[in-house]
Amino acid sequence: MLLRQLDESRARLTITVDDRPLQAFAGETIAACLLSNGVTFTRLTPGGARRAPYCLMGACFECTMTVDGRTNVQTCLRLAEDGMVVERTRTP
């Protein structure tokens, strides 16, 4: 786990990341939830390198994933919602 949630009294919700259910807290972005749950990378570069959320403000596009079937969503800009399905976006 790279991150931990300070206020565990927040409402809990579940999202699915690459078929694995993860626990998130209300008000967290998807990216924060990933980093709090041991998901260490979000995408592969064309060269095959692993990348993870970096700027957390929408400027680096490292955190893009497929969310509810929509590809290339910036997960640092979207709040986690109960039942969300998140997958790694494949790049060549």
């Binding site: 790279l2 991150l3 300070l6 206020d7 927040r10 959320p53 957390l56 640092c76």
Partner: peptide, 20 residues
């Protein structure tokens, strides 16, 4: 992975309530 910006840590703290 694991490298972020300082501003990112601040965003995570202020926005999502998360810390390293």
């Amino acid at each position: 992975p694991g490298v972020v910006t300082v501003g990112a840590l601040q965003s995570l703290l202020k926005g999502s309530g998360c810390v390293p």
